[in-house]
């Protein structure tokens, strides 16, 4: 318990470099412990109190606001280089309480409590009336879109069979009416063309992809994201991701890089 009866906390400016240092340690803590979705970045420091701690050190009691970025939680990109999800893509905010110990110049997180919530539909539509809103990940249309997309993906796979890891984001797009989903997949020890019982396939943990985005137009028309370079990650030999996903509507097909480096394509279509 950092609080000691009779002691008085030190007031510090929320934008003080020392406060910011503690807040950035807190944000790193979030991103190192999150197990799904996207990394968060610091948006605002709401409150700070600095309590003395016996026998030594100080405890920074912080309230911070964060914003979701576009970096998947497994993405090795430093969060400072990650793009913040804009309001037009239905931004997500995090609210966190932290206690961070500063001792001998080192910051250590003692306590963390965070919650996240999407921007209100009213606010999104105020900025952008045609923007798609986030949909629940268990929404029937979302689940259907993921199933169709993953089946199409595996049909095109000339190597490993891919399993769903998680649905990270989903939006209902008003025009044209479609469902937009982002999901992560992992390669398995099965060969796609030979799979009879997917339940018997074992995921290869080191082959989890970053989320691909897929828009399901109507009932069956799948539009994939384009293949884009991703930070190189160690890729053991073996299964390969399909490099040219099926696109039912050629007109809607995003153009692929003419000759992308092989290492850049290991995770398939990415945002």
């Amino acid at each position: 318990a950092p609080h000691i009866s009779g002691l008085v906390y030190r007031e510090l400016d929320c934008d003080d470099p020392e406060t910011e240092q503690a807040a950035l340690v807190a944000v790193d803590y979030i991103n190192n412990h999150v197990l799904q979705g996207y990394k968060h970045t610091l948006n605002q420091i709401d409150k700070v109190k600095v309590w003395p701690r016996r026998p030594m050190g100080e405890v920074f009691e912080l309230e911070i606001d964060t914003l979701e970025t576009k970096c998947y939680f497994l993405d090795p990109t430093p969060v400072a280089n990650c793009t913040v999800r804009p309001l037009t893509e239905h931004a997500v905010e995090g609210d966190c309480d932290f206690q961070v110990l500063k001792q001998d110049g080192q910051f250590t997180v003692l306590f963390a409590k965070c919650g996240s919530s999407p921007d209100s539909a009213e606010d999104v539509l105020k900025v952008c009336p045609q923007c798609p809103l986030l949909a629940p990940l268990n929404d029937t249309k979302v689940v259907h879109a993921v199933e169709v997309a993953l089946t199409a993906f595996n049909t095109q796979s000339n190597g490993s069979y891919f399993q769903l890891v998680e649905v990270s984001r989903a939006q209902h797009v008003p025009l044209p009416p479609s469902t937009y989903v982002e999901f992560a997949v992992t390669a398995t020890d099965c060969v796609a063309a030979e799979v009879t019982d997917p339940a018997k396939c074992n995921p290869l943990a080191e082959k989890v992809s970053r989320p691909a985005w897929v828009a399901l137009l109507g009932r069956r028309k799948v539009k994939w994201s384009s293949l884009q370079p991703v930070p190189p990650q160690p890729q053991p030999d073996g299964a390969e991701m399909p490099t040219t996903p099926s696109v039912a509507d050629p007109a809607a097909s995003p153009s692929l890089p003419a000759d992308p480096p092989a290492a850049a394509l290991v995770v398939g279509p990415v945002v």
Binding site: D13, D15, D46
Partner: peptide
């Protein structure tokens, strides 16, 4: 601040140390 009673003291800027600056946008 020390001032003569007859001389009005100019009000200084109000210090609002918290919350801090918004780095991106507020939702």
């Amino acid at each position: 601040t020390v001032a003569q009673p007859s001389v009005p003291v100019a009000a200084g800027p109000v210090v609002r140390p918290c919350p801090g600056r918004i780095r991106h946008f507020k939702i």
